[in-house]
Design a protein around this nucleic acid. Structure first.
Length: 549
RNA sequence: GUCUCCGUAGCUCAGUGGAAGAGCACCUGGCUUCGAACCAGGGUGUCGUAGGUUCGACUCCUACCGGGGACUCCA
């Protein structure tokens, strides 16, 4: 690995200067290529220790480095306030290509960084009282992609969805269905959406509105999630916490430990003792539980099943975090192992107009409508485009655009273009020789180098994205890769097979595009987006074929 | 009032304490379908404001300004 090589060399140089190098020597690929291929801040970090200014120290370190004759290194220079910049021969990128091909689509970007650790990712967890809307979609796709990212880095991942299948809202849901069935308006606090009217019509006369509605809603949610390729390992029922006694058990522990008190006929959790801004009611004065109580039992149960927990919640739940963390701490769990990711709101735009998501008014943008309109790939990719920390505008027109200003299209198209070249090469009778027999050092064109440089960054991006819980970083990277593929493909000096291209160059470029294809297919696959063979539909392709005649 | 997210190019947004970015839009040139449902160039910025920490801050800390969201014996 090139970084290790350079770090070792830097450490050796520092030692020769009598310096104690930092445990992790700073080394990065500068954004600006005028600053070389790799850059280290070692001199800046140790100049105080050396008792000299960074630039002078950098000069001394460079003299040491030059005498080491480090592999791949072409030249070293001091720059800016004291950076040590390395310029490398392209030979180091040949190793990148080999490692990508060796990993293949299955293993590209994967690591064992978190091997042996289990993690539970809970997401969606929408009330089973209605269909999922477009706002839920963001959390659903984010959670699923995050789970994939975590698997990529070695975690044993459980995808889990919590079902709030008991309590007040289920009663209200059942009453609303029953009211509509009787052609009446639901009571004021009831569910007003059009779907209640539709479902009430479907509901058999003798059905229990709550149980029938629960099954109906759950199936509806499962169907739309399946259409997005999302499947859960565990559907966890809130009712089961009551029936198997886990709710009473965790409440009992809290009582035993003096974590609750009675006031006004209600039972309160002393959450302020553990960082919450108010105490919270667990058992209301009418004897019923609040939403929080079973949820505490639920999270305590999850802690018994996984080393780490991730919750994906909507922005309206952020205030809920301190009380849950407080309760987990009271029950003896490590609050820092509960990681809550908050997704900010999504605005849907169609024809420049905002589409409202309000459940109350019934003006609801269903996730199923969204998927039907733009397709599963575009839905997933678009949701994943930007950080969940910022509000998102989801442009329905852009998501289906068949042009490169649509990031989904541009990225998939890059894969299709590579496949087309590969197929054409085969049709022309050009066979790709085994990698060992191919001279990759002929890859020196700027477009080729750029492809390899992007590919090199891939695994590191995956690692950062998993740590930061930020799938959008992988999306950013795969867009960069696609862009590099398009630049390569469009460049007339970069034909893979052609009259002016030597057989040696053809072989090297066949492997180059295969490496790029691996990067695209592996990343898109993990994000749950397809890597198509062609962007044309079968019919369009047939039509084009006949045009050639 | 308290908590929280956001504030970076005209717009939409990336940015891991290290030397300000992408796409779109815009301008210039190219492109008779060949691998062009385009290509090559061009950046226009007090990184919301003011302090602080640091050799170094878009990044960390504090306060303030502006916008979104949340505060319940609701879920």
């Amino acid at each position: 690995m090139i970084q290790q090589l350079l770090r070792d060399a830097l450490a050796e140089a520092a030692e020769a200067e009598g310096l104690t190098a930092p445990s992790e020597i700073g080394l990065e690929q500068p954004a600006n290529r005028d600053h070389g291929d790799w850059s280290s801040n070692l001199a800046l970090a140790t100049s105080k220790q050396a008792g000299t200014n960074p630039r002078e120290l950098a000069g001394r370190l460079i003299a040491r480095l030059e005498s080491q004759n480090v592999a791949h290194v072409d030249s070293i220079e001091v720059a800016g306030p004291g950076f040590i910049n390395f310029r490398l021969h392209n030979t180091w990128l040949v190793e990148v290509l080999r490692s990508v091909v060796a990993a293949g689509v299955e293993n590209f970007g994967s690591s064992a960084a978190n091997a042996g650790k289990s993690i539970n990712v809970e997401f969606v967890s929408a009330n089973p009282t209605g269909p999922l809307h477009a706002g839920h979609g963001r959390g659903a796709v984010y959670g699923d992609a995050l789970a994939a990212l975590l698997e990529w880095t070695g975690y044993d991942v459980t995808r889990e969805c919590y079902l709030n299948d008991r309590g007040v809202q289920m009663q209200v849901f059942g009453q609303s269905l029953a009211a509509r069935k009787a052609d009446e308006q639901p009571e004021e606090a009831g569910y007003m959406g059009q779907y209640i009217i539709d479902w009430a019509e479907e509901m058999p006369d003798d059905a229990d509105p709550i149980e029938w509605g629960y099954a109906r809603a759950l199936q509806d949610q499962k169907d739309v999630l399946a259409s997005l390729g999302i499947e859960f390992d565990v559907w966890f029922s809130e009712r089961s916490l009551v029936s198997d006694g886990k709710l009473e058990a965790s409440l009992g522990v809290l009582k035993e430990r003096g974590m609750v008190f009675d006031d006004g006929g209600a039972t309160w959790l002393r959450s302020t003792d553990f960082g919450d801004d108010k105490d919270r009611v667990l058992v209301k004065s009418d004897g019923s539980y609040t939403y929080l109580t079973p949820d505490i039992a639920y999270h305590h149960d999850k802690f018994s099943r996984a080393d780490e927990l991730v919750n994906v919640w909507g922005a309206d739940h952020h205030g809920y975090i301190p009380r849950m963390k407080a309760a987990m701490e009271m029950l003896g769990n490590d609050r820092d192992k509960l990681d809550v990711q908050i997704t900010q709101m999504v605005k849907l735009m169609r024809d420049g107009q905002e589409v409202k998501l309000s459940k109350r008014t019934g003006e609801i943008e269903l996730l199923s409508d969204l998927v039907e309109e733009v397709g599963a790939d575009a839905t997933r990719f678009t949701y994943l485009l930007q950080s969940i920390d910022s509000q998102q505008t989801f442009d329905l027109a852009l998501a289906v655009s068949q042009a490169k200003d649509n990031p989904v299209f541009a990225t998939q198209y890059a894969h299709a273009r590579i496949r087309r070249v590969q197929v054409k090469a085969e049709e022309a009778g050009v066979e790709r020789k085994p990698l060992d027999e191919v001279d990759l050092t002929v890859l020196v064109h700027e477009r080729e180098i750029e492809l390899l440089r992007v590919l090199f960054r891939g695994p590191e991006v995956v690692e950062i994205a998993a740590r930061e819980r930020a799938p959008h970083r992988v999306v950013g990277w795969v867009r960069d890769l696609a862009s590099a593929v398009h630049s390569f493909y469009q460049n007339k000096e970069c034909y893979v097979v052609g009259d002016g291209v030597s057989p040696e160059l053809t072989q090297a470029r066949l492997w180059l595009i295969e490496a790029a294809r691996i990067g695209l297919a592996a990343t898109l696959g993990r994000l749950g987006v397809s890597a198509p063979e062609s962007m044309w539909s079968d019919e369009a392709e047939a039509a084009m074929g006949s045009d050639d005649d």
